[in-house]
Simulated scan of single mutants.
Amino acid sequence: MKYKLLFASLLLCSLTNVSASACPTGDPKSIRYIRRNNNRCEGIIGINDNIPISATFQLISIATRNLNKWGETLTIQLPPVANSSNPEVKLRSIEQDYQLDKIDIPPNTSRFSFSTYVLKKAQIPVNRLRAIAWVNFEDLAHTYIPVKIGNPSHEYEFVFFTSNWTKINKFTILHDGKKEVYSHQRRNSQSPGEIIFKWEASNAPTGRYVLKIEAEVDRRGVVAPESIKQDIVFFHDQTWLNQ
């Protein structure tokens, strides 16, 4: 378990943590991280791959899903965001060291389908696949957009990864950075691993939102906990979520 957490922390350094050189071509029947169908990099990240050290506390997923099992293919969908850059998307399962990224999404589309061969071969649980996507939008260089993993639900799942014991002091969502629409506090410290929040957003108006999170992280060997404050901007499309 300690090894898994250590390797997971190495895996989570940044949203672009694996270099292009770490995505070679290879046998499509393997489950190693390789270029597949000339439209994505996908597979299990090897221990010898060049992966730098992680941040202590990081957002790894904003997604909506309603799946019970894998089919032959999986479709992910993104909300359309006018006047934005092409989206960057990353799917991963931390426990199994699985990652899918460098997706070639066709122009003027917001969906991407791929074979579930690796997901099933690597025994990735349906509810453990995480997804994160972002665009450059208006005056902000990094705006997150939720990802539909297969069928949607009416709620978003926000997943953070921490490599240490962590206490969440504040989790607040603001519409346009002003009106509070959701707030949650966890009084007890969370063990290393994933921390999940869910927000029922089907009645929330379309627009830009800001997630404010404050946490205290107890790092090993450090007397005082590390204080973390993050403002995470994301775009919500009410009609897209309810489709």
Rank of each mutant, 00 (worst) to 15 (best):
G193D: 04
N37K: 12
G71T: 03
G46W: 04
L5T: 14
T56C: 06
I196P: 02
F161G: 14
R208Q: 13
K120E: 11
S61Y: 07
A224S: 09
L15W: 07
V89F: 05
T162H: 04
Q185W: 05
S110D: 14
A215D: 05
N136C: 11
A63L: 11
N86Y: 08
R65Y: 13
K229V: 09
K69D: 06
A20V: 11
K178A: 08
F171S: 00
K120R: 15
L12Q: 09
W165E: 13
G221D: 04
S9C: 05
I44K: 14
I213T: 15
T64Q: 09
A55W: 00
V135C: 10
L241F: 10
V210G: 08
A122F: 08
R32G: 13
R187H: 11
L59D: 01
E42A: 00
L174T: 11
L100I: 05
H184T: 04
V126K: 05
L129V: 03
E226Y: 08
I105K: 02
N48W: 14
N164S: 10
S9H: 12
E194V: 06
L15Q: 12
V135P: 12
L211Q: 15
G177W: 13
I228E: 09
W199C: 04
G207Y: 12
A215L: 07
K198M: 09
I145R: 15
F112D: 03
L174F: 14
F235V: 00
L78W: 02
L59G: 01
R40F: 00
S189W: 08
P106A: 03
